[in-house]
């Protein structure tokens, strides 16, 4: 076999190692992102990001006396955090103190009780405090589907023009506020 042939052969036989190394490097990066919480195979990219809020109209969730709709949300005139929650949801309990802190810091949070009885959701709020400026309820969960919600808690940031700018599935943690939400709220204020 000629030298050139041998060189080509060497290159060819190196291919399996190259392929495996590439796959291994990929796995390593994914594992690293997973450890930092930046990768989760179960989450999805919400297609509403950068799009206007979907049309909806929801009834009131006590203690509020009036519900709200998409028009009210667009007319709110500042960044609004829309938070889907439920009293049966354990991570929501974890998130609650952060919502209170956000509200005290001047953020406007609108809550939507998801698949929850009106009394149970109201009970949760009287027990743990009410961080919500406005409250509505979506007991059938149909509006939540229009928002691309697949579990609770989920939070959306809506800017003054009614465009959704940010979305998170899963609880807001203290570092979510400092690292992500505060800069965003300032930017869209």
């Amino acid at each position: 076999m000629s030298g050139e042939n041998l060189a080509r052969r060497r290159l060819l036989l190196l291919a399996p190692l190259a392929l495996a190394s590439a796959a291994g490097a990929g796995f390593l990066v994914v594992l690293d992102r997973m450890k930092r919480g930046a990768y989760d195979p179960h989450t999805l990219a919400n297609p509403l990001l950068g799009a206007p809020v979907p049309d909806f109209s929801l009834p009131a969730q006590p203690p509020a006396t009036t519900g709200f709709d998409s028009a009210a949300l667009r007319a709110a005139g500042g960044p609004v955090l829309v938070n889907f929650f439920a009293s049966w949801c354990v991570p929501c309990e974890m998130e609650h103190p952060q919502l209170i802190a956000l509200q005290r810091g001047g953020a406007q949070i609108w809550g939507i009780a998801y698949k929850d009885s009106s009394a149970a959701a109201a009970g949760l709020l009287s027990r743990n405090g009410n961080p919500y400026a406005r409250l509505a309820r979506d007991e059938p969960g149909r509006v939540a589907i229009d928002w691309g919600v697949y579990g609770v808690p989920e939070t959306f940031l809506v800017d003054r023009t009614g465009i959704i700018r940010w979305h998170q599935a899963g609880p807001i943690m203290p570092e979510t506020i400092t690292e992500t939400l505060q800069p965003l709220l300032r930017r869209y204020a």
Partner: peptide, 13 residues
């Protein structure tokens, strides 16, 4: 896997 494939790349040619 890496050492086996490395050995393969070295020895097989």
């Amino acid at each position: 896997i890496g050492s086996a494939l490395l050995l393969f790349a070295l020895r097989a040619p």
